[in-house]
């Protein structure tokens, strides 16, 4: 909740004096979404290609890529990246498994295995991949000046 409050404050500040707020950012963040398309090659073999889609259909496999870079002049400490999962997408895992997730809209966080999901009828069961609402990566060390990286997770269009 603290982060939400801070975020709201930051957004308010951004609304009030947008130029200043943007200039204060010394980390850049970008999001790309790719879809896996199976393409048949001339030799008859099929290959999976990643395309940047305008449209998808249910069942399509998506690859989300979040790129970050410290473009400022000071290290960014306590760095974390959060990606709320679109409602129409079912989480399908990350490439490195270093993420923590939430299955309740960002209230509780942890590894998927450590979380439980409360159904509408009050029943509690172990959380499943399909319950995930948010994905977060928390960095243990500061993001030094100029350092960059990307975070990848997969999802399926529901």
């Amino acid at each position: 909740m603290k982060i939400n409050l801070l975020k709201r404050l930051a957004m308010l500040a951004a609304l009030a004096i947008p130029g200043t707020a943007i200039a204060a950012n010394n980390v850049s963040l970008s999001s790309d979404v790719f879809v896996e398309r199976t393409v048949e090659k001339p030799d008859g073999k099929t290959a999976v290609m990643l395309e940047e889609p305008k449209t998808v259909v249910p069942g399509d496999n998506l690859v989300f890529v979040v790129k970050y870079k410290n473009v400022g002049s000071t290290p960014a400490t306590d760095f974390s990246v959060t990606n709320p999962l679109p409602k129409a997408v079912a989480f399908n895992g990350t490439s490195d498994g270093t993420e923590i997730v939430s299955v309740d809209g960002g209230k509780k966080w942890g590894s998927l295995a450590a979380l439980t999901y409360t159904r509408e009828n009050g029943e509690v069961r172990p959380a499943l991949m399909s319950d995930v609402t948010h994905i977060k990566w928390k960095f243990n060390s500061a993001l030094s000046v100029g350092s960059e990286g990307k975070l990848v997770f997969r999802g399926t269009v529901k």
Binding site: L6, K7, A10, L29, F79, V81, V89
Partner: peptide, 18 residues
Amino acid sequence: ILNTAQASYDGPGGPVVI
């Protein structure tokens, strides 16, 4: 389907969310 990622960190001027 709209996707936006967020990052938060402590910069020189305090906590930042982008």
